[in-house]
Computed example of a mutant assay.
Amino acid sequence: MAEASGVRVAWADLPRTVRAAVEDVLGSPVVAAVTQPGGFSPGSADRVRTADGRRAFVKAVAGSTNVHSPILHRREIAVTAAMPPDAPVPRLLGSHDDGDWVALVLSDVEGRHPHLPWRADELEAVRVALEALAATPLTDGLAALSGTGEGFADDFAGWRRLCDEPDPGLDPWAARHLDRLAETAARAEAALGGDELVHGDARADNLLVRPDGSVVVVDWPWATLGAGWFDRLALLVNVGLNDPDADVEGLLARWLPHVPADDVDAVLAGLGAYFADVARRPDPPGLPTVRAFQRAQGAMVLRWLERRWSIRSHA
């Protein structure tokens, strides 16, 4: 299994000023904190309990550790604050930003990450949650989000960069089909057009299953507006990544029966472009495990696309 896993900072290791700001939001001192697994942020991620019994989820990161991470936290603050109250997401209780450290204080969700490999009941619950999110009524803040295709346009151009900058470590099948992959990925931006809420990073570590079986979707820095089905397709990549024998094509047929095959191919090719291009770069500061995870995702996407094209050529 390929679980998303980074290097965390513990609550006790946060600067005193950051911990004090969080306690001001909560109105009581934090007396217990449990670091949570999963994800790739080089900052903290803790379930905390205060002296008066209040619970919350806190995550904080410093620009001095990774210059991009505070930007993502600031985006998540804005997106989470704009969510309607009945959306299956954590509530934003408050935040802190001193120019270096950025912290979010969110409602604590009683739940756990889905089992891996995926179980059918939990997978179905996630599908339901993602469909509901796509149909979320747009507040003014959400309506101002950028387009999904626009947001991914540079990432999906990775095959073009690889045409200009050959990589000897590129997957052999991808190297043989580089022009076709680039042409296919070029259609992904248009395929993702729409006005539905898109999470943009649907995978097991960004999902929590409650005791009643319902699902809460967490980590929102990549939210955009576009084709809501993108999140369900991205989730199937996570399913196949964690179980090579999973029938992702059968799930796709049931989940997205009205999405044209060419649009699916375009987005898969776009995702493959991103993973193949970014995974050849050095590890980002504070994120020593992310490239290996990206390479694993890229390999899964390419094998899936290879099967789809092989089946079609023999039809």
Rank of each mutant, 00 (worst) to 15 (best):
D179T: 15
G193N: 12
R127M: 03
P168V: 09
H199K: 05
S146I: 08
L170D: 01
W101E: 00
A103M: 02
V89S: 07
G158K: 02
G94W: 02
G94D: 02
R119T: 11
R112N: 03
V198G: 05
R112S: 11
E150C: 08
D154T: 15
D100E: 07
G193R: 15
P85T: 05
G151H: 10
W118M: 04
D108W: 13
A87R: 02
G200T: 08
G158F: 05
G194K: 13
A188N: 11
G149A: 12
D100T: 10
A125F: 04
G141I: 00
V109T: 14
H177A: 09
L104M: 13
W159G: 01
D100S: 06
A132Y: 00
H199P: 03
A125I: 04
R127L: 00
W159R: 03
H115A: 15
G94N: 03
P114Y: 11
V89Y: 01
A174K: 04
M83K: 03
G149F: 09
L93K: 07
H96M: 01
D167T: 09
R187P: 11
P85F: 00
A182K: 10
A186E: 15
D108N: 14
A186S: 15
A120W: 01
R160K: 13
E196K: 14
D108Q: 14
E110D: 15
V128M: 00
L92S: 09
L162C: 06
D121V: 10
P137V: 01
R91S: 09
A120Q: 13
V128C: 04
D201N: 14
A125T: 06
A157T: 05
V198A: 06
W118L: 01
D100P: 10
V89A: 14
V109C: 05
H115V: 13
R127G: 10
L142K: 03
E122T: 10
A182I: 12
V126A: 10
D154S: 13
V109A: 02
L92V: 03
R176N: 13
D164T: 15
F152H: 12
T139Q: 04
A134R: 12
